[in-house]
Amino acid sequence: MKILVGVKRVVDYAVKIRVKPDRSGVVTEGVQHSMNPFDEIALEEAVKLKEKKLATEVVAFSLGGPKSAEVLRTALAKGADKAVHVQVTDAEAGKLESFHVAKALQKIVEQEKFDAVFLGKQAIDDDSSQTAPILAGLLEWPQALYASKVEDAGAGHMKVTREIDGGLDTIKVKVPFVLSADLRLNEPRYATLPNIMKAKKKPLKNIPIKDLNVDITPQTETLEVTEPPVRQAGGFVDDVSALVAKLKEKGFVKA
């Protein structure tokens, strides 16, 4: 089984997000970036399957600006065999949508004959969670979304446990399939320094987006990006009667 894993370069989870003064987006210049944490989980699962000899090759994929190569190198350090970087300019990268990523993934899958595509359940920047289902639709493959456990079910099938509201859902999917990884699927490994060094020798292929014939014209227009409302500071009251008076004043208790 050849597995393609989609990884996205996002603003690091530990960074405090700031909105640009003109409200057109968030500040990304000079900000620490890293691999989307859910993509790390998807990648870890693919690498684990390879270690269990259930997969033969793990290829990391990223669609993004020149710096997306960094996360692909991290993916290689974490155990991917090869990497594919579908290149766009930084300006285009900011306007990419799940649909475009799914389209690019579809082209790569069709060119190189993959048996499975693993993706994070969502990216922590746009939180859209749509790439995996759109891709499954485009390829007409079964989908296993929000996976928390992946097992071999034999005869070209996989058994996947999914996290759903209020419980778990166990499904059997026919290979080839699309999977999206949930938080509890596994614990991603750390990219150690020796592995980062070794990863520099692994192959990374660059493909300009125009070579894939994928139209990346935006379908949505961002009107405004704003900060979440700031929580008002609380206050102290002197005694119980003052508290009751305040509550009555606000209408929380009937007079």
Partner: peptide, 13 residues
Amino acid sequence: YSLRKYRAMKQRY
């Protein structure tokens, strides 16, 4: 590091 990231994701999502 792994716990820190896990906790942050759990808290957020």
